[in-house]
């Protein structure tokens, strides 16, 4: 295991644990952005430049900011007296530990997990663009339609209550 990977992995896991355990939700969102940045650097290390930069643009840039906005709009950052974990937290933790144990056992036992990469793989933006415009043009269009529908739907869901209260007045 190389040293850069170990550093990034430890940082990513620590940020993920912080995102799931901290009390203040704004701190959780910032730790989540750090997790996404760590994953992006692992993508870059694996030779997937385009995905790494798309990860930074979409997750660190858009999703993390969207979550911060949702936290502010719902006033979740204000301190509460209640515990942050639900009453059945022990069962949830147990399920997660069992899932990790099963996955880790399978990975360690598998013969495929020790293999080395066959050659230096490079996915240039030109290759990805060619693939998107030839073999994968139908999924690309479906994603475009899905994003349009999801954004319109999100706006309608978020504004619905306001319209109803105006009508009732």
């Amino acid at each position: 295991m190389s040293l850069p990977f170990a550093i990034i992995a430890v940082l990513t896991i620590a940020a993920a644990v912080a995102a799931m355990t901290l009390r203040n939700l704004v701190h959780c969102a910032l730790a989540l952005a750090l997790t996404f940045a760590g994953l992006a650097s692992i993508y870059l290390q694996l030779g997937a430049q385009f995905v790494g930069f798309a990860q930074i643009l979409v997750y660190v840039g858009a999703v993390a900011i969207l979550i911060v906005f949702a936290i502010m709009l719902t006033r979740s950052s204000e301190p509460t007296e209640q515990p942050v974990f639900s009453a059945s937290w022990l069962w949830g933790l147990l399920v997660a530990v069992i899932v990790f144990g099963t996955l880790a056992w399978t990975i360690v036992k598998s013969t495929a997990s020790q293999r080395e990469p066959v050659q230096v793989a490079e996915a240039t933006v030109k290759q990805i663009g060619d693939a998107l415009m030839t073999g994968f043009v139908l999924p690309l269009e479906v994603i475009a339609l899905l994003l349009t529908a999801a954004l319109i739907g999100a706006v309608i869901i978020a504004m619905r209550d306001e319209v109803e209260t105006k009508k009732s007045k």
Binding site: A9, T12, I13, A16, V17, A19, M20, T21, L25, C28, T35, L39, I42, I67, A70, I71, T74, S76, Q82, P83, V84, F85, S86, S88, W89, W91, G92, L93, V95, A96, V97, V99, F100, L103, A104, I107
Partner: peptide, 21 residues
């Protein structure tokens, strides 16, 4: 690393009270 991140996310989704978390 991927399995660890998945388990952390699953634990958070199952145990936190706040919907955003």
């Amino acid at each position: 690393l991927s399995a660890m991140l998945f388990a952390i996310g699953l634990a958070g989704a199952l145990t936190r009270r706040n919907a955003i978390l």
